[in-house]
Amino acid sequence: MLTPVDGARSRAVNEELTLALTPADVARLGELARVRLTEEELVHLAPQLDVILASVARVTEVAGADVPPTSHALPLTNVFRDDVVTESLPAEAVLAGAPSVEDGRFRVPRILTEDA
């Protein structure tokens, strides 16, 4: 499934990009994204992600320095509206979907560590 790469420039970039991901790398990325992955998932995911990343790296073949990036299909910047007070959802309606509620507020697990 690896895509052949033309041109020395993109080959260099691609070699740099296709460092094999180890299960440990994937575990680290999982922690960054706050997704705990099992040992089994790590072993399964690492080679899959490698193949996907190797395949998508071909974007570097045509992304020359002279091409401006597009982040969005619409040429919109800073859309403003009038600052008018409108009704918001009642607190009970919002709290109704919460996993845990205490005294009319969201109850969350502890946010500080022992030594903080």
Partner: peptide, 28 residues
């Protein structure tokens, strides 16, 4: 999970320009 991890990787420092940046250029 696959997509969250790929996205996290593509946006991480050191890879951002080559991956996300290049993809945005392809979008152009």
């Amino acid at each position: 999970k696959r997509r969250i991890i790929i996205g996290t990787y593509a946006l991480s420092s050191g890879y951002y320009d080559a991956y996300y940046g290049s993809a945005q250029k392809v979008r152009t």
